[in-house]
């Protein structure tokens, strides 16, 4: 090793030291410890007791609330992510028509995404208020429909949360907008020469060209969907009511860990969550070979 190489190694390690320490202390160690705790009964106060796979068995076999939480989370993610993406793409396509005032519209659609989640959750609780909220008031005023109880009604609470999630499609929209700008104009010209109508232009040019962006947004959406927490915590005061209809996976994990101080149980939930997210992401990535079209291929 030359002096230069030795100096480089030393400097490289020194500059990277924060991450090396951080990786060991706040990523690797916790990851391993979650595994260890998941095999124990542990409430922080008393020393942990080994229980083997009991936590996992209890979760999967004896705890119906676990399955409810999983069902709620999957229900929410499977509906809110694709619908939200379609909405974001639709808005981005409208904006990419180079309409006047594009920047103003873009700002309007984007603003909700930066509102602190606690504030937007409190706000939407009020929008959903069955008697005096904006939503039911507007439904009554314009359509003469008597709106449901939304967050107060077990059948409407998840649709309400999905509806609320559409308010923040602006982030995905901005990314789509950049993706659309990258579509070569020549492709549209060729399509026009071939006599393609608007629908074919969309289906054969626009859509394939933005599939990489769809993939990216889909993966992010899946990961975030599974970790959906703050909104439900704020809106149901951490209870996941009514009738457990908004008991989401991350909320149930939090309750077990920090409310009942059942750290072992919570850790087992965390590992199962990790595996689910990992396999869902992998499945999407593997499937993407069939539907994602990369430039220049």
């Amino acid at each position: 090793m030359t002096r230069r190489e030795r100096a480089n190694l030393r400097n490289g390690l020194l500059f990277a030291a924060p991450f090396i320490v951080g990786f060991l202390a706040v990523y690797l160690y916790p990851l391993v410890m979650t595994m260890v705790y998941s095999l124990q009964r542990y409430n922080v106060i008393k020393p942990p007791v080994w229980v083997g796979l009991a936590n996992y068995r209890e979760l999967l076999v004896e705890d119906p609330r676990f399955w409810t939480a999983l069902y709620n989370t999957v229900y929410f993610t499977v509906l809110s992510v694709p619908l939200g993406l379609a909405l974001a793409l639709g808005l981005a396509m409208l904006l990419s028509l180079k309409v006047r005032g594009q920047a103003v519209y873009r700002t309007i659609f984007f603003l909700p995404t930066i509102v602190p989640v606690v504030a937007s959750a409190v706000l939407w609780m009020w929008v959903f208020n069955p008697q005096s909220g904006l939503l039911n008031g507007t439904l009554q005023e314009f359509f003469g429909i008597e709106g449901p109880g939304w967050m107060a009604d077990e059948h409407w609470s998840k649709p309400a949360l999905i509806l609320m999630s559409f308010w923040t499609v602006g982030g995905a929209m901005v990314i789509f907008l950049a993706g659309l700008a990258d579509v070569p104009q020549s492709l549209y010209e060729v399509a026009d020469i071939d006599g393609a109508g608007p629908f074919r232009r969309f289906w054969n040019v626009t859509l394939p060209m933005v599939t990489p962006v769809i993939l990216f947004n889909l993966v992010i959406g899946l990961i975030n969907g599974f970790q959906y927490f703050t909104q439900v915590y704020v809106m149901t005061n951490g209870r996941g009511e009514p009738v457990g209809s908004t008991m989401f996976y991350a909320l149930y994990l939090y309750r077990n860990s920090f409310y009942y101080l059942n750290m072992g149980y919570g850790s087992a939930m965390a590992w199962i969550m990790f595996l689910i997210i990992l396999s869902a992401t992998l499945a999407v990535m593997l499937s993407s070979k069939r539907w994602v079209h990369y430039h220049g291929e």
Partner: peptide, 19 residues
């Protein structure tokens, strides 16, 4: 670095709390 970006925060939260 890239790998750690993929780990959901909740997976690390409990040991971090204990730590």
């Amino acid at each position: 670095v890239l790998a750690t970006m993929m780990i959901p925060y909740q997976v690390m939260l409990i040991p971090l709390f204990v730590l």
